[in-house]
Amino acid sequence: MKQNKYDDLGFFEKYSQMPRSTGGLNVAGEWPALRALLPELQDKNVLDLGCGYGWHCLYAHEMQARSVIGIDLSEKMLERAREMTKDSAIEYRRLAIEDIDFAAGEFDVVISSLALHYVERFDIVCRKVHHCLAPGGSFIFSVEHPIFTSRAEQDWYYGTQGERLHWPVDGYQDEGLRQARFLDNDVVKYHRTAATYMNTLIDSGFRITRISEPQPAQEMLDNHPEMQDETRRPIFLLIAAVKNE
Rank of each mutant, 00 (worst) to 15 (best):
P214Y: 07
Y53I: 06
G137L: 06
H131D: 09
Y172P: 06
Y157W: 11
L58R: 15
G23S: 14
R35P: 00
A134H: 09
W156H: 07
T149L: 09
W167V: 02
P234Q: 03
S74N: 06
R20C: 12
P225A: 09
S204G: 07
R232H: 13
H145V: 01
L238Q: 06
L116I: 06
E144M: 10
H130V: 06
W156P: 07
E79W: 07
I90G: 02
R93S: 06
G137N: 05
H61C: 10
L41E: 00
I124M: 12
P216N: 07
I235M: 15
A96R: 03
T209V: 10
F12K: 01
F182I: 12
P216I: 07
S74C: 04
G176D: 05
L221Q: 02
Y59R: 07
P216F: 08
I90V: 14
W55M: 04
A33S: 15
D87G: 03
K243T: 06
N4Y: 04
D170C: 11
K14P: 05
T193Y: 01
S67D: 08
D8V: 10
L38R: 05
A241G: 01
F148R: 10
T149H: 02
A240M: 01
E75G: 11
A152Y: 05
R121A: 10
K243L: 07
R80G: 07
P32D: 05
T209M: 08
G171R: 11
T160S: 15
R127S: 12
V110S: 00
L237E: 05
A180S: 15
L34A: 09
D203P: 03
G171Y: 08
V119K: 04
H145R: 03
G162C: 06
I100E: 03
Q218I: 08
I235P: 01
G105E: 08
Q17W: 03
G136K: 04
I111N: 02
L47K: 01
A152Q: 11
H131M: 09
V187L: 10
S212A: 15
E213N: 03
K5D: 12
A217Q: 14
G137Y: 05
F11W: 06
S112G: 04
I202M: 10
I211C: 11
M77L: 04
D87A: 09
E91R: 15
G162E: 05
P225D: 09
V119F: 04
A194K: 15
D7G: 04
D184V: 01
I211F: 14
H130R: 12
F206W: 00
M198G: 08
V27G: 06
S112E: 03
H224G: 09
A195N: 15
R232A: 12
H191C: 06
D155L: 12
M84N: 13
S142I: 00
C57H: 02
A96E: 09
W55H: 13
S150Y: 03
D48H: 05
H61A: 13
F139T: 00
R80P: 09
I140V: 15
Q179K: 15
D43M: 04
E83T: 10
G50A: 03
I69Q: 09
I202A: 13
V129D: 01
R233M: 14
S74Y: 03
S138A: 14
H130I: 07
Y157N: 14
Q64A: 13
L183I: 07
G105L: 08
